[in-house]
Each structure stands twice: as structure tokens, then as C-alpha cells.
Design a binder for these strands. Structure first.
Lengths: 165, 165
DNA sequence: CGCAATTCAGTTGTGCACAACTCAATGGCT
DNA sequence: AGCCATTGAGTTGTGCACAACTGAATTGCG
């Protein structure tokens, strides 16, 4: 780990980039899965998976919503949301109804049961915060860094696509 | 987003935790997927997915390895690794051989083709680093924070399990 | 030695993420 | 009005993550 294979003598600073990048992809992956694990345990009681919980958070916060809007909030497409919402509907937490105004769009409502679940879910965020062992300030700081990173990655992805080479 | 629904007047500081937590799970999720997207594009040329790339990184760095060790490096279990390694083997990048010393364990080797792929993969990390728009120092800092977070979440997960309540 | 507990890889089943596609509804344009 | 590009949800297929399990090999203990 501390040894350097000295891949090519061309550019030492690039080499530093290489190793650090490897670590950040490892680190981000690991953090993401570690979070998932903690959520999984906490949400088991509620009968929700982590992505389902995210959907419920959006609905609790913003109320009825077309699938499209949900996808924008969560950066998920219909290929992910459609089956997920179907499972939430089967569980009795949401209802889906075709819009009368635009029959292409489907509005997702909370059922009474889905709305009631919010109370039981209230304990989750505090426990997560406790599990991180971090203070408000550190969480805020980390969030800001992650959001900046995401924005940078997104714009890089956009520029990369067409004939930019 | 800036409005506060004032859920319960009981505990203002807890409430702050609640909202911030929501954001950090959103943020981490988004960052993780944004990274995945950039890797996906870069790795397409190499015929690798992002998790397959992580496996190859470990093999390039540490050489032949039993499945168990690979799993420890990447925090993945056999349920994830077995089919992934099978695909890498089908692609001709690795070979799997039962250990003669311990027939329970399977050692994963790089083929010549798998080893050769390393050269083509060298450009990836630099491009990723460029896409993040972050300097060495910032990446290092972020990595440190994420690792601390992961460690905290892991130990919390361990303590949570049995009759701690 | 012989048997029980453990270890390791793999399988099965569920659910998420995403690309590529289908299909109906819509809206703009002539 | 008639046509066509666009939009929104859903489906299909691939691959990852994880829990729960199987089954074989190994280890430990009496």
C-alpha cells in the first residue's frame, strides 16, 4: 500500500492522482454500502428498503406527485421507479392514478397507511445521525463536498458524450 | 427546500438532525451514482463494469488471490463475487482454480489478457480525477472523511444487532 | 480415530440501477 | 384536420448487492 510500483517515469504528479483516485472510488463505494447497511437494519421494522424510504421521504415532504417529478427529485428513471412504486402500492403505502388532464402521466398518492408511516419513520434520521458519529457541522460540510462532487461529475459526463475528442 | 414544515415543536436541535440526515443520504446516494455514471462511460471501452474494474484493480495491485481475500478487499461476499468472477472468466480476463492445498478455496489469477488490460486502464484514474474537478488535497480530505464515516457506520451496525435495547 | 462446528465458494431469490425499447397521449406545424 | 416529433410510463434484459441457504472440505475436540 505504501510501496510505489513506479509505473512510468513520465509524470510523478499524475501518478499521485492515479493512486488517490483508486482510493476515492473504494472509499465512496464503501461509504455508500455502509450507509445502506445501517438503513437496511433501521428500515426493516417499517417494511421499507432504502430506495423505497427515499421515495416515501419525497412524498411525505412534497405530497402527491407524478412519477416524472419523483424521478427528478431522486435522479431515478421510470425503469427503476415503476417496479419500485408497484411494490409500494402492493404494500398499501401509495396509490397510483392516471392523471385525467394528461393521461400519459401517473400521479402517486400516499394512502392513509403511507401517511401514517411517517410517524414511525421519525426515529430513523436521528439514529442514522447517531450512527455516523458526526456532528451537525461535519455532516453539513460533507454534504456540501458531495454535492459539489456530484455537480462536477454530472457536468463532466455531459461534456464527455459527443464529439468532444 | 428552505421552508420548514415545523413538524413538532418539541426539539429544535433534533429537528435539525432530521433534515440534515435526509440531505446526506440523498447526497451520498447521488454522488455514488454520479461516480458510477462517469466510470461506466470510461470503462465501456475496456468492456468492464465498475465493480469488475474494482476487482481488476485489486488483482493488478496484489496479484493472485482467493475469492475470500478479494471479498475482504472490496467488502463483498461470495454471493456478489461468484457471478462477477464468472463473467470476468468468460471474458478471458481471469482464471479460477481450486487450491490444491485447500480445496474449499478458489484462487483467482489474471490471464495474460487480464494483465495486459492494465495498460489500457491506466488512463481511467486521471480522467476520473479530472471529472471530479478536485485537486489532490481535496480528494484526500474527502476520502479521509468518507473512511471515518464508514468506520463509524460499521461499528454502529455491529453494536446495533443484538439485545442492546 | 470419529464426529461436530467452522470455513469457503456457490446458488437462489429479492430488489435496485440503468440502457434500450414499446406504446399511447400530447402538442406543434402545416 | 392530419401528421409527426416529443413526452411519460412501463417492459425487458443485464448486472450488482445482499440475505439465506447448500454442500463440500477442513479443523478441532474428545
Amino acid at each position: 500500500m505504501t510501496a510505489t510500483p513506479a509505473p512510468s517515469p513520465e509524470d510523478t504528479s499524475d501518478d499521485a492522482f492515479l493512486r488517490l483516485d483508486e482510493q476515492i472510488c473504494f472509499s465512496l463505494n464503501a461509504a455508500s454500502r455502509a450507509f445502506g447497511g445501517v438503513y437496511r437494519v433501521l428500515l426493516k421494522d417499517l417494511g421499507l428498503t432504502y430506495p423505497q424510504y427515499l421515495v416515501m421521504l419525497v412524498l411525505w415532504e412534497h405530497g402527491e406527485q407524478p412519477v416524472k417529478k419523483l424521478g427528478e427529485h431522486l435522479r431515478l428513471d421510470s425503469g427503476t421507479l415503476s417496479p419500485l412504486l408497484k411494490r409500494l402500492e402492493t404494500a398499501g403505502l401509495v396509490r397510483r392514478e392516471r392523471s385525467a388532464r394528461d393521461e400519459r402521466s401517473v400521479h402517486v398518492h400516499l394512502t392513509d397507511e403511507g401517511a401514517a408511516l411517517r410517524e414511525r419513520a421519525r426515529v430513523v434520521p436521528r439514529r442514522i445521525a447517531a450512527a455516523t458519529g458526526a456532528g451537525l457541522e461535519e455532516i453539513r460540510e460533507l454534504r456540501a463536498r458531495l454535492d459539489r462532487l456530484t455537480a462536477a461529475l454530472d457536468s463532466a459526463a455531459l461534456e464527455e458524450t459527443p464529439g468532444c475528442d
